[in-house]
Simulated assay, not measured.
Amino acid sequence: MTGIFTLTALAFGLSVDAFAAALGKGTGDRTSPLLGALRIGFVFAAMEALMPVVGYLIGLALSAWVASVDHWIAFVLLSLVGLHMIWQAFKDEPETLKARAEDAANGPIKGPRWVHLGLAAIATSIDATIVGVSLAMVDTNLFLAVAIIFAVTFAMCTAGALIGRKAGDWLGHWAEVAGGVVLIAIGVMILTQHLSQGI
């Protein structure tokens, strides 16, 4: 059974992309009101919590065929997502990262704010679908996982939307690195636990 601490760390790792996008929103509007920040936090959190459910259902359907190597699959998926996040953070120059966060937060097309926000939330939560597959490979309480992911993402994105421009430029870069490291660490932990138990 995946514990609350592990799920909280996983939620942190998943939510850093959304956090970076929320920072981008704050960069574009340094005086974002609390209501706007709460709206950003809710939309990102809802999507970040929904995507693992989709992945979990996919993983559940496959679990009967991959039961003997499920811990390896969870390890590989989490590691790939984590490495991609770290690579993306170091690949982008600070100005590029800032522009990417602003694009995610504000949306590249014209239209209602909710549409922009929804598209940004989907874009930053795609990785969560892959992680959801890995959750199905280990003994995880899906409802607890979804609740924790929602709560952590909501808190991080609401805070991110309220952070000023200068802090946002620096934090967005290193938040992605930290999130990637956390996901890799969880993958390693799942693998070592299963191997030590002879599973």
Rank of each mutant, 00 (worst) to 15 (best):
T2W: 15
T2P: 11
T2G: 10
G3S: 15
F5P: 08
F5R: 13
F5E: 14
T6F: 13
T8R: 15
A9T: 15
L10G: 08
L10R: 13
G13H: 13
D17N: 11
A20S: 06
A21E: 00
G24W: 00
K25S: 11
G28S: 09
T31R: 15
T31E: 12
L34F: 10
L34W: 06
G36A: 08
A37R: 02
G41Y: 00
V43F: 01
A45P: 02
A46F: 08
M47P: 02
L50P: 07
V54G: 08
V54W: 05
V54T: 13
G55P: 02
G55L: 03
L57S: 03
L60H: 06
L60R: 11
L62Y: 00
L62P: 00
A64V: 09
A64N: 09
A64Y: 06
H71L: 10
W72N: 09
W72L: 14
I73A: 04
F75T: 07
F75A: 14
S79C: 12
S79M: 13
L80C: 14
H84T: 13
I86L: 11
W87L: 14
W87P: 06
D92S: 12
E95S: 12
L97M: 11
L97I: 06
K98W: 06
A99F: 10
A101C: 09
D103Q: 12
A104W: 07
N106Y: 14
I109M: 13
G111T: 03
G111D: 00
R113K: 12
W114L: 14
H116F: 06
H116S: 15
H116K: 15
L117I: 01
G118R: 02
L119C: 05
A120M: 12
A120G: 15
A121V: 04
A123E: 02
A123N: 05
S125T: 05
D127K: 06
A128D: 01
T129K: 09
I130G: 03
I130Y: 01
V131L: 05
S134E: 03
A136P: 03
M137P: 00
D139R: 11
F143V: 15
L144H: 06
L144S: 12
L144V: 11
A145Q: 00
V146I: 12
A147H: 03
I148N: 00
I149R: 04
F154V: 07
A155M: 07
M156L: 15
C157K: 01
A159P: 01
G160E: 00
G160L: 06
A161G: 05
A161V: 05
L162A: 04
I163C: 04
R165T: 09
K166H: 11
G168Q: 07
D169I: 11
D169C: 10
W170A: 15
G172A: 13
W174H: 13
A175E: 02
A175G: 05
V177N: 04
V177S: 06
A178H: 01
G180W: 00
V181K: 07
L183I: 06
I184P: 03
I186L: 14
G187S: 08
M189G: 11
L191Q: 09
Q193M: 13
L195E: 14
S196T: 13
Q197E: 13
I199H: 12
